[in-house]
Amino acid sequence: MIFLFLLHIKRTFQNHLRTFRNIYLNAFIAIFLFQLIACEKIPTGIVEQTSLYNKVKTISAPSNFSYSSTDSILVTTIEFEDSKYIGKVWLQIKSDDGSTTITSSTQMFDNGNTSISGDQKANDNIYSAKVGISKKFSNGKYFIDYFVEDNIRRASENVTKVASHYFNYNNNQVSYPPIISNLTIPNSVSRGESFIFTIKVEDGNGLGDISQVYFKLFRPDGSLVDPQNGLGYFLMVDDGNFNTFGDATAGDGIYSFKNSFSATTQTGQWKFEFQAKDKSGNLSNVIIHLMTVN
């Protein structure tokens, strides 16, 4: 009887052992297949997918570029250590302050087509592009941003900015200073009263050449008001934000400012000194206005 009981225990143990071995074997096969599939999607040794394409070796672009009637094409290249996982490369060019866009998306190629993209040799991991820059664009600093779309991640997650380059642009046109006029501002206000004032600005090189329209403010005792912006003067805007700044229409050349004097403000005659500056650094005429604060 004891022998039969021990035999039953032995057989039960052997059955459990076989079951455990089968489970372990199946788990091992599943893990192996998972790793095999994963290795097909992400190459061995890659820890972060973003490191597949953003290893930029060199960027070639001018530090200074001048417009010419015979040649207004800017050529730039970007070289990668490896392009296996690169799906697409493109660039955009904007002014330093973001107000002007020369191109929002120009594709770069590694196809050896010198006439279209300026690329010298195909499949050498160097991507090239040609960008025409018109004389209508204002002088100043511009930046080139380079982007890569990889061929591994999902479409909504596979775009990364990989490099930037700054250059100075000279349109070789006569640079005209801005002109300010048509100041609209009250002659007197009471403390605590909100008021809006506007001024018109013009420029022979176009409104896009305007860098700043501003005013300095002097108290009745002659001291300069510090706007706490590091400039020493207050910036006016032409952005169409009426609620905040009192500007009715964006981009119409009429700059605005909304202000009020607090209850503790000095009463008497305040001086406003208006001026504008373009992107070449040219200054406009100065308009001075005296306002009585009651």
Rank of each mutant, 00 (worst) to 15 (best):
K88N: 06
S138F: 01
I86R: 02
A122M: 15
Q120A: 15
I78F: 05
T114S: 12
Q173N: 11
L91V: 09
K84R: 12
Y176H: 14
Q92T: 15
V89G: 00
T184L: 13
A155P: 06
P62W: 00
L91N: 02
N151F: 01
S175V: 12
Y146G: 02
M108A: 05
I179R: 09
A163Y: 11
R191V: 14
A129V: 10
N123E: 14
E193I: 10
S95H: 03
D119Y: 01
K94C: 02
S104F: 13
E193N: 08
D71V: 05
F195S: 12
V174G: 00
S188V: 08
Y146H: 03
N171L: 10
S190L: 11
D97F: 11
S104V: 09
S138R: 05
L183H: 12
D150F: 02
D110E: 14
I126M: 07
I179W: 08
M108R: 04
M108I: 05
G132V: 05
W90V: 04
N182E: 13
S105L: 08
V174T: 06
S63E: 09
S83F: 01
F147D: 01
N111T: 06
N113P: 07
H165W: 00
F195L: 13
F65C: 01
P62N: 01
T114I: 10
T106F: 02
T101P: 03
E79N: 09
K130L: 04
I78K: 10
I126Q: 06
Y169R: 04
N158Y: 06
M108V: 06
P62K: 02
Q173C: 11
N168R: 15
S156Y: 11
Y146K: 10
S83A: 13
D150M: 04
S190P: 09
A122Q: 14
I116R: 12
Y142K: 03
T77E: 15
F167R: 02
F80T: 00
T77F: 11
I180W: 11
I185M: 14
D71N: 14
I93D: 01
S68E: 02
S72E: 02
I133P: 03
N172E: 09
S156Q: 11
T100W: 02
Q92D: 15
G140F: 05
